[in-house]
Nucleic acid binder design. Structure first.
Lengths: 203, 203
DNA sequence: AACGATCTGGACTGTTCAGTAAAGAACCCC
DNA sequence: GGGGTTCTTTACTGAACAGTCCAGATCGTT
């Protein structure tokens, strides 16, 4: 009963996410969001609440998708764990490079902008960080099982290092590094993972 | 001739820098800067120009100091190059951890916030990036000369990787990683630098 | 086809913003 | 100590902001 909403929630959230991603939290106005989504302010307030709630909805939606796609990209058989790792990192570089505005991902951007200021956002970002790190750690454990990685290495620490690399690269793309440099950095990061001791030969 | 300014330019720039660093570019108001510096808007405009010029002055001042202190911390005899490298990274972690608000450094913050939007700022940040990378590359070359690092490794690529680590860590401190984790990541990053081939024994 | 519930979009409010202008205070030089 | 130059403060302007509200449009239900 009553009139149904005339918009697709996912589409609207995607447009909102892009608006925040481009302009930052403070730099984004409700007028801008209204223009980007085609919805009036009244509709936005009725559907999502105030600016902060609106932002959290967009951030949550982004994180949900990011966590799911990351976990999917890194899951698979032990034999190809290292390949998946490289593909995951290269893919994130290319996705940002191919973005029409080369915008950093939501996570990188708002971890810097909102940490220590917006507890709700920080909590959601922390959850995303944990998920990304755990997905990477799982892939590293697979690589260890396959003999591609020193079994004595601590997967969580190395996974943290990879997230650090991931975020650092996302930050620095905006400064003008070209694809070749970025790929070289990714390869250097992967090449530097501890190889198995010679005594413990691989299968 | 005429009345001299009643403030210390460096002090004022430091206060302005902190204000921008805490609130971001869009989140910083001239009222806030006025309160933080004790100067009226008129004085600020007369001394530095508009908000953008004011920001660039603070950013430039920060970068100048950062580049100088980084180069100084990484310069020294070949024998202790690896120690300097570790001290440099640990030191940057501690400085941010000890910051009363755990604010990320100017470079990390504004590379994310202003890339692709503020050409002047991006250019200055790029210059800072190049300086940091070159200082790190110099230290890596020293380590190579001392036999601590594979002489076949490309110092600039590894230096880029270290800047990536540096920026990534700066981003992630805000998310709540504790010091032990961060130190472990720094050590993992350093441990993973390519060691010399066994055939080429050190001096 | 008419009702009522829900959605929609524009108008409105009070606040804050960046930037300007002018009046007043402080200082150096002569 | 006076004059002129520079600094400092305050008040002001027009625009943009977040958030609210309501009249009208739209659709499922009966």
């Amino acid at each position: 009963m009553g009139r149904p909403p005339g918009f697709d929630r996912r589409e609207v959230l995607a447009a909102i996410e892009r608006e925040f991603r481009r302009n930052g939290y403070d730099g984004t106005s409700l007028d801008g969001i209204s223009a980007a989504t085609g919805l009036g302010r009244g509709s936005l307030y009725a559907a999502f609440g105030d600016k902060h709630a609106l932002f959290l909805a967009a951030l949550g939606d982004y994180c949900d998708q990011d966590e799911a796609s990351g976990a999917a990209a890194l899951a698979g058989p032990d034999e190809t764990a290292m390949e998946r790792l490289r593909a995951y990192l290269i893919d994130s570089v290319d996705r940002q490079l191919n973005d029409p505005e080369r915008l950093a991902c939501m996570a990188s951007r708002f971890t810097v902008e909102l940490a220590g200021r917006d507890q709700d956002a920080t909590a959601r970002l922390r959850q995303g960080f944990d998920a990304q790190r755990e997905a990477l750690a799982g892939c590293l454990r697979a690589a260890q099982r396959n003999g591609d990685l020193d079994p004595a290495a601590e997967p969580v620490t190395l996974a943290t290092l990879l997230v650090v690399d991931f975020r650092g690269i996302a930050s620095l793309i905006g400064i003008g590094l070209d694809r070749a440099e970025l790929v070289a950095v990714v390869d250097a990061a992967l090449a530097s993972l501890p190889v198995p001791r010679p005594s413990a030969a691989a299968s």
